[in-house]
């Protein structure tokens, strides 16, 4: 049995513990008992994306040192996974233990489909679901085909969801536009960030979304913040929560 670590990102740890629990449950259902080490608490992305590499590097080092001891590292976030896989190289150039870690770090949906090779679940989820394609998972990890690129169409998240009983995946007019979270962008460019989020919400509203889901809770935190402010009825659930059998409300 491979030793599997679940990396729980900082904001999920503090604000969305159920996303981590749901991830553990889904993994366990497929025979994987993942451990959650005390450290690292964060992949370092907030600092790296602000250009503060010196502040990000210690976190990247911590990540490699602690999680490098496991055989597989799974993360319920495309964005944090992309940080590790695409951007650590720049922070840690040349560290051989990093190269090893990079090749064994997976985002949840790709771990389920490509490593565990599970059959998409048939459990019930009788809701109209709007899938938000979080950008880093889509365009950095290629968890799906982006609308800009030409080639076969696919989406790992959609593949996991579409065979659930009673689920209806809605059709958006802009299938993979950014929600406007963008880390520190959300506060630095607050006006644009919120406008982008509201535009995404309107697209989901016209499509009849009841439950808005994504591979990244950070996008959903931003969208949910906008939804709750206006008391709009759409509910958000991380894809792990849907797969684990959670329902809205």
């Amino acid at each position: 049995m491979p030793r599997v670590a679940l990396f729980v990102p900082c904001y999920i740890d503090q604000f969305y513990p159920d996303v981590a629990w749901a991830t553990l449950e889904v993994l366990e259902r497929h025979g994987v008992r993942a451990k959650v080490p005390e450290m690292p608490t964060c992949c370092g992305q907030p600092m790296a994306n602000t250009g503060c590499v010196n502040e990000a590097r210690p976190l990247a080092e911590q990540f490699v040192e602690v999680l490098g001891r496991f055989d597989h590292v799974v993360c319920p976030s495309g964005s944090c996974t992309a940080m590790v896989r695409q951007h650590y190289e720049h922070l840690l150039h040349g560290r051989t233990d990093y190269v090893a870690l990079r090749n064994k770090t997976w985002e949840l949906t790709e771990y389920l489909l490509d490593v565990l090779r599970i059959d998409p679940p048939r459990s019930p989820f009788p809701y109209r679901v709007g899938l938000h394609q979080s950008c880093h998972g889509l365009r950095e990890l290629r968890l799906g085909s982006s609308s800009e690129t030409v080639g076969p169409r696919f989406s790992k998240a959609q593949k996991l969801l579409e065979s659930m009983q009673g689920i209806q995946l809605v059709k958006l007019t802009r299938p993979d536009e950014c929600c406007g979270f963008g880390g520190t962008f959300a506060v630095q460019e607050e006006a644009i960030s919120c406008r982008m989020g509201l535009d995404r919400i309107h697209d989901h509203e016209q499509a009849g979304t009841e439950v808005l889901t994504a591979n990244d809770m950070s996008c959903l935190m931003h969208l949910d913040g906008l939804l709750r402010r206006d008391r709009r009825p759409i509910r958000v659930l991380h894809i792990a929560q849907i797969l684990a059998g959670r329902t809205p409300n």
């Binding site: 740890d13 604000f15 969305y16 513990p17 607050e190 931003h222 949910d224 913040g225 906008l226 402010r229």
Partner: peptide, 21 residues
């Protein structure tokens, strides 16, 4: 707090994931 101008902050859970874990 620019976050809160148009957005709600997350609803805080009683315990963090790691506390509960």
């Amino acid at each position: 707090n620019p976050w809160g101008r148009q957005r709600e902050l997350p609803i805080p859970p009683r315990r963090s994931f790691r506390q509960e874990y």
